[in-house]
Amino acid sequence: KMTIRVKGKELARRIAKEMKDRNLKVEIHEHGDEVILEIE
């Protein structure tokens, strides 16, 4: 399990899509400006 902190929703969406393309499970937690992606 891996956690990534990202500034900006646009970048977070791009990373999430990339991870889904690799068949990984992604959970997205938004905290205002910061987005936390949990990847399994």
Score class of each variant (00 low, 15 high):
Ile4Leu: 10
Leu24Cys: 12
Ile36Tyr: 11
Arg5Met: 09
Met19Glu: 00
Lys1Asn: 06
His29Leu: 11
Leu24Asp: 00
Gly8Cys: 15
Arg5Ala: 05
Ile39Lys: 00
Arg14Val: 09
Ile39Ser: 00
Glu18Gln: 13
Arg22Phe: 06
Ile36Phe: 10
Val35Ile: 15
Lys1Tyr: 08
Ala16Asp: 01
Arg22Val: 03
Arg22Lys: 10
Ile15Phe: 04
Met19Ala: 08
Glu38Trp: 12
Ala12Ile: 02
Arg13Cys: 14
Glu10Lys: 09
Leu24Gln: 04
Glu30Trp: 13
His29Ile: 14
Val26Gln: 00
Lys9Arg: 13
His31Gln: 12
His31Lys: 10
Ile4Tyr: 05
Arg5Thr: 10
Leu24Ala: 04
Glu34Ser: 09
Leu24Ile: 12
Ile28Arg: 03
Glu10Pro: 03
Ala16His: 04
Ile15Glu: 00
Ile4Gln: 02
Val26Glu: 00
Arg22Ala: 08
Val35Asn: 03
Asp33Pro: 04
Glu10Ser: 07
Gly32Tyr: 06
Gly32Trp: 06
Glu27Arg: 11
His29Glu: 05
Glu30Asn: 06
His29Thr: 13
Ile39Ala: 03
Asp21Glu: 13
Arg14Met: 11
Val6Lys: 02
Glu10Met: 06
Asp21Ser: 12
Ile4Asp: 01
Ala12Tyr: 01
Met2Phe: 13
Leu37Met: 05
Glu18Tyr: 15
Glu30Phe: 14
Leu24Thr: 03
Val26Asn: 00
Lys20Thr: 14
Leu24Trp: 14
Thr3Asn: 04
Glu27Met: 14
Arg13Thr: 11
Glu34Val: 14
Asn23Met: 07
His31Glu: 14
Ala12Cys: 08
Glu10Val: 06
Asp21Arg: 14
Ala12Trp: 03
Ile28Pro: 01
Leu11His: 06
Glu38Tyr: 15
Lys20His: 09
Glu40Met: 13
His31Asp: 14
Ile36Ala: 02
Lys7Ser: 09
Asn23Ala: 06
Glu38Met: 14
Ile4Ser: 00
Glu34Gly: 04
Met2Trp: 15
Gly32Arg: 05
Val26Arg: 00
Glu18Cys: 13
Ala16Thr: 04
Thr3Glu: 05
Lys9Phe: 09
Leu11Ala: 09
Asp21Leu: 12
Glu27Ala: 13
Glu34Phe: 15
Glu18His: 13
Ile15Asp: 00
Ile36Glu: 04
Arg14Glu: 08
Asp21Ala: 13
Glu30Met: 12
Leu11Val: 09
Glu40Thr: 15
Lys20Pro: 00
Lys25Pro: 03
Gly32Val: 05
Met2Pro: 02
Ile4His: 02
His29Phe: 14
Ile39Met: 04
Asp33Gln: 06
Lys17Asp: 08
Glu27Phe: 13
Val6Ser: 01
Ile15Cys: 05
Ile4Val: 06
Ile36Val: 10
Arg14Lys: 12
Asp21Pro: 02
Lys9Leu: 15
Val6Met: 06
Lys7Asp: 05
Lys7Phe: 12
Ile36Ser: 03
Ile39Phe: 08
Thr3Ile: 14
Ile39Gln: 01
Gly32Cys: 13
Ile28Thr: 04
Val6Glu: 01
Lys17Gln: 13
Thr3Lys: 08
Lys20Gly: 08
Glu38Val: 15
Glu27Thr: 15
Val35Ser: 05
Lys1Asp: 03
Glu38Thr: 14
His29Trp: 13
Leu37Asp: 01
Met2Gln: 10
Asp21Val: 06
Val26Asp: 00
Ile36His: 05
Lys20Asn: 10
Gly32Glu: 09
Val6Thr: 03
Asp33Thr: 06
Asp33Val: 06
Leu24Tyr: 14
Ile39Glu: 01
Leu37Trp: 01
Lys20Val: 10
Ile4Lys: 02
Glu34His: 13
Asp33Arg: 04
Val26Trp: 02
Leu37Gly: 00
Leu37Ala: 00
Val26Thr: 03
Lys20Phe: 09
Lys1Ser: 07
Glu30Tyr: 15
Glu27Ser: 13
His31Leu: 14
Glu10Phe: 05
Arg22Gln: 09
Ile4Thr: 01
Asp21Met: 12
Gly8Val: 06
Ala16Phe: 09
Glu27Pro: 01
Lys1Val: 08
Glu38Lys: 10
His31Trp: 13
Lys20Arg: 15
Lys17Ala: 12
Lys1Gln: 06
